[in-house]
Nucleic acid binder design. Sequence first.
DNA 1: TTGAAAGCGCTAACAC
DNA 2: GTGTTAGCGCTTTCAA
Lengths: 337, 337
Amino acid sequence: MKPTIYDIAREAGVSATTVSKVINNKGRISEKTKAKIMKIMEDLHYQPNVLASAMKGKNTFTIGIIIPDMNNPVYSEYLKLIEAYGRELGFSILICNTNNDPEKEEEQVTLFRQRQVDGFIIASKFKNDEVLKELINENFPLVLFALERPELSIDCVTIDDFLGGYKVTEYLLSLGHRQIGVMTEDAVSSLERVKGYKQALSNADIEYSEKLIYQSETTIERAVEQAGKLLDNQDRPTAIFGCNDVLAVGTIMAAKQRGIKIPNELSVIGFDNTFMCKIVEPQLSSVAAPLGEMGRKAMDLLISKIDKTNKLKQRIKMLPDLVIRETTARVYGKDGQ
Amino acid sequence: MKPTIYDIAREAGVSATTVSKVINNKGRISEKTKAKIMKIMEDLHYQPNVLASAMKGKNTFTIGIIIPDMNNPVYSEYLKLIEAYGRELGFSILICNTNNDPEKEEEQVTLFRQRQVDGFIIASKFKNDEVLKELINENFPLVLFALERPELSIDCVTIDDFLGGYKVTEYLLSLGHRQIGVMTEDAVSSLERVKGYKQALSNADIEYSEKLIYQSETTIERAVEQAGKLLDNQDRPTAIFGCNDVLAVGTIMAAKQRGIKIPNELSVIGFDNTFMCKIVEPQLSSVAAPLGEMGRKAMDLLISKIDKTNKLKQRIKMLPDLVIRETTARVYGKDGQ
DNA sequence: TTGAAAGCGCTAACAC
DNA sequence: GTGTTAGCGCTTTCAA
């Protein structure tokens, strides 16, 4: 059997309380007994049972992260960063994929709460508003990551998606593109990115057309399919903005299938600046956000809620930057051919 | 406050014991009280506290997964599959990245054990043998995934890496390649893959040369670097086997940097058949294993250990298959140029 | 068919 | 400085 606090106490000839105090560095214990207890804990390979201490109202030092799909490299990046920083702070991470399914979302929140997680980080997409509202009502520690709910009072750390979309479009316009397509997905962040796109068009007095916007699930296969439709359009765009790198990569592939040269005949730009950008050919231009910093901010924010050291809710929005690589170029005029 | 079993009991006018029995479907309870209790649990949104029941010797229904690096798409794939199946069975997943650091490995095992996980799945790389041995000694539920320790008695579910390496090499030989380089990494599985490579060479009476084997960390950047050295060799190989897709992709990129045409001047083949294969150009040939099935087997095996329904240890080895895409071709003879 | 009592491993008051 | 006591939420005898 694993030793308990009582085994240590007996061995040291003290009470369990004293041992507990040593473990938690509380109260005053003589250096002598402290040292003795420490030594015995070492010898017996004593490991405190987090569950038991959690039963007494302490933290479980476990937080739940809910993400849509670990296969999307951005999400695995989120996960990795948050996990790394969480561990530094002594927290373990319970994860799940929801595949964007509201039922799974609810199920997972329940499952995690049964395990008494101290808080949640919910990333990127979350459909089930009921669940969110319940958590808010109970004032349960919760931070949204790369996800914003303007109409709900929740702390969040996000990318300024609007600005990202705006910058992308502004850049493409500066290259002479006028017919700019968009591959989007069903997510709040993408909506914002598209809004930025529209704003940039409007500022440049260019008419916006629904026909240039295609929505797709975020998988390479579906993106190739949808981008294909966009490319087979009567008026084929000279540039396409993929609201995430997966969509952009799918677009590149669809273009290749049609013999369309990138960037000469078509510019493509993605969003998220994942490692995919560097392995496709030509290398994909994209939009980068300081994910490491965001992960740390989200964790710090969450922990301040768990500790109740900070009751103020806030939205932290990090500004993204363009990373120009090889898929974006001056528009290739019909005359210039 | 969250309702406890006592709140339910009071409300229903019964004892906590009775409620507990209803929750666990144990003992005999009249249909009437059962229904009444169920209804009240619903109304009060009662959620059993898994920690408290774990304190009484029950499972936590939580397992720890330890992987080297979530950014490698194979690992995120592992994670996703295991998580999905685990959830089906009612288990939650605690994760961590170890970045292949033995200290972190030990730290994480400790952290997870403090949280009373029911068992571990350790994937792909794990250096700290001491920790492994201790777990075995305690007979702690543990399954290795895509990782084998021939000298330790641990259950595992793996890919037949030797066969994979053999098949790759046999195939390259059949295309006329005689000078076959290898990009490997510091992992048991890669060692096996290289062994398969050597065996195939030996069977074909081709001499093996150390100079054709380069080791690299599994990141694109490092792989490009190391593959570069291999390509700058006096006797540049006509084909390179990357022991995983990341290494193979790095090889492709290094070749491109040098203006080496793939597959005409150089064949490249990877291992793992990740989604990267389809997005690089040309599309990468690779080795595929039935990961979904492996994930399910690993979980089932682990759970049988947790439940103690199966004391027999076993090694399950799944056989891989080649997936030929565009990066492999007949050798381009010096004469034929 | 139901319940009282004990206890899992730990911590927090409070006493000494 | 240290120990006694009670109790977190649950399950498990055992008795009724």
